[in-house]
Amino acid sequence: MTDELRGLLRESTEAHLPDRARMLARVERGMARPSTAGRLRDRQRAGALTWPKTVLATLATAGTLTVSALVVVAVVHTPDPPRNPPAATPSAVGRATSPTEGSRTEDGPLWADGSVDPHSNAYWAQSNVTLKTRTPLTALVVELRIALTDGVKDTGSWRTLPAADFDLSAREEGGFLVYRWTLKPGRIVPSGEHVFAGQYDHAAGGRDAKDDTYRIDAAGAAESGAAVWGGFA
């Protein structure tokens, strides 16, 4: 075999030998890439680690919402007001008995009576509240309530005691024309008989006073409060 032939054979053999450097690079890339099974196991482990965190975060959020709801309910909900709150009574007297509970014309030193004045007529009337007290009074409230029947309208009022000793109000309240005389602080009502009167127009004809009422609350310097009330004949 000539030298030329040997050279040709060597060249042909080398052309069919694998590129060793390229093969090593492919193997290294394959080893660096995780297998499908490995990737699956990694995802399963990640899911196993993430699940408790997700549950805890959900529970924490639910707990926060529950506490917030309880706080909102506690703040918004307030006790319902009483359906029929008691009527306020003058602080100077301190009694709380309703005049609609029947009649009580005597209590302690007090006696009272209600009547329609005989001078009333077919278009106008006067209702009198007569008070008798056996002791001087340092606190006194007289209330006259005229039911608002047809045409009832305030036309005035008077009392036998000095006008300067009392604060007077006359206004419509809850279906009544209400006159209220309140003794001013430092004034005294002497023992004896006193009259308080309210005057008003009404519809033509006779007027029924069955729903009219009066109430008197009083107290003396050395006595506890007393109250009398009733209606009109």
Score class of each variant (00 low, 15 high):
residue 128 N to L: 09
residue 9 L to A: 15
residue 227 A to V: 14
residue 26 R to I: 11
residue 135 T to F: 06
residue 117 D to V: 05
residue 19 D to N: 14
residue 218 A to V: 05
residue 145 R to K: 10
residue 100 T to L: 10
residue 148 L to C: 01
residue 128 N to F: 02
residue 215 R to F: 06
residue 77 H to F: 13
residue 205 G to E: 13
residue 180 R to M: 07
residue 21 A to D: 14
residue 58 T to M: 12
residue 52 P to T: 09
residue 124 W to F: 12
residue 155 T to S: 10
residue 103 S to A: 15
residue 219 A to W: 00
residue 124 W to V: 00
residue 40 L to W: 11
residue 3 D to E: 15
residue 163 A to P: 01
residue 173 E to D: 13
residue 218 A to L: 04
residue 9 L to W: 12
residue 53 K to H: 10
residue 66 T to G: 07
residue 24 L to F: 02
residue 85 P to E: 08
residue 81 P to V: 10
residue 74 A to T: 09
residue 33 R to N: 04
residue 75 V to Y: 14
residue 53 K to S: 07
residue 214 Y to R: 03
residue 204 A to L: 07
residue 229 W to G: 01
residue 181 W to A: 13
residue 39 R to N: 09
residue 165 D to N: 08
residue 175 G to L: 00
residue 99 P to L: 01
residue 1 M to W: 11
residue 44 Q to D: 12
residue 177 L to C: 01
residue 213 T to M: 09
residue 65 L to T: 08
residue 219 A to K: 15
residue 98 S to N: 06
residue 21 A to N: 09
residue 48 A to M: 11
residue 57 A to R: 11
residue 201 D to M: 04
residue 68 S to P: 00
residue 214 Y to F: 15
residue 200 Y to W: 15
residue 50 T to Q: 14
residue 130 T to G: 00
residue 193 E to G: 06
residue 229 W to N: 02
residue 111 W to N: 03
residue 159 R to F: 02
residue 5 L to R: 10
residue 123 Y to T: 13
residue 165 D to E: 08
residue 210 K to Q: 10
residue 131 L to Q: 03
residue 53 K to R: 10
residue 15 A to R: 14
residue 133 T to S: 14
residue 130 T to S: 09
residue 206 G to I: 07
residue 178 V to M: 03
residue 146 I to F: 04
residue 97 T to F: 07
residue 203 A to S: 12
residue 200 Y to K: 02
residue 91 S to D: 14
residue 225 G to W: 00
residue 25 A to Y: 01
residue 168 L to Y: 11
residue 55 V to G: 02
residue 71 V to T: 14
residue 115 S to C: 04
residue 66 T to N: 01
residue 144 L to K: 05
residue 71 V to S: 10
residue 24 L to T: 09
residue 10 R to V: 13
residue 151 G to M: 05
residue 126 Q to H: 04
residue 148 L to R: 11
residue 202 H to R: 01
residue 130 T to A: 10
residue 57 A to D: 04
residue 110 L to F: 11
residue 78 T to Q: 15
residue 133 T to H: 04
residue 155 T to L: 07
residue 169 S to W: 00
residue 14 E to G: 01
residue 89 T to P: 00
residue 34 P to E: 13
residue 209 A to V: 04
residue 118 P to A: 12
residue 154 D to V: 05
residue 215 R to G: 11
